[in-house]
Design a protein around this nucleic acid. Structure first.
Lengths: 74, 74
DNA sequence: CTTTTTTGAAGACTATAGTCCGTGGACTTA
DNA sequence: TAAGTCCACGGACTATAGTCTTCAAAAAAG
């Protein structure tokens, strides 16, 4: 499993936990809906700034998203 | 202070802690030496995969780099 | 069933991450 | 004087992050 696939899985879990649709999350962090879809499917490697943007509406610290990603990769 | 400036400062601290030159670190994580310089000066926003690549030779978990970045931003 | 919401996916595009070439300056050691 | 190391910085480039539009299909929900 690649880093981006693991991150995508983490993002999807956190998004669903907060009861966001992809479109709702996209609006909340000012990103495109199709891009959220791409990230969740492991097709994109977001920058650190995008990770910070995603973390905010998910009400989680950015580094926690990476920590969960690392745990999936073990 | 921007996210990328904070990350650059963290990267530089960790690199110096491990006694790497920019070029040494670049070779260790298969990146360009001028790109390491750009990151440290806050001129680039690395992807999550690049963060993972940088973390390895620095012998620190990727999420720790983000955690330290968040701490600098508070 | 029908209707609505949500998501996958393709294509064309713009912005920027990341590479590769170089120059020159600050600093050290010989 | 050099000669070596380290780094800031520029320019030109390639690869890919991220946008925008659209269509269709899965999946809820009524």
């Amino acid at each position: 499993m690649s880093i981006e696939e693991a991150f995508g899985q983490v993002l999807k879990e956190e998004r669903i936990r907060m009861k966001f649709s992809q479109e709702g999350l996209a609006h909340s962090c000012d990103l495109d809906r199709t891009y959220i879809s791409l990230i969740e499917r492991g097709k994109r490697k977001p920058t650190i700034n995008t990770v910070f943007a995603l973390a905010k509406p998910l009400e989680v610290s950015p580094h926690i998203l990476l920590k969960k990603t690392e745990e999936l990769l073990r």
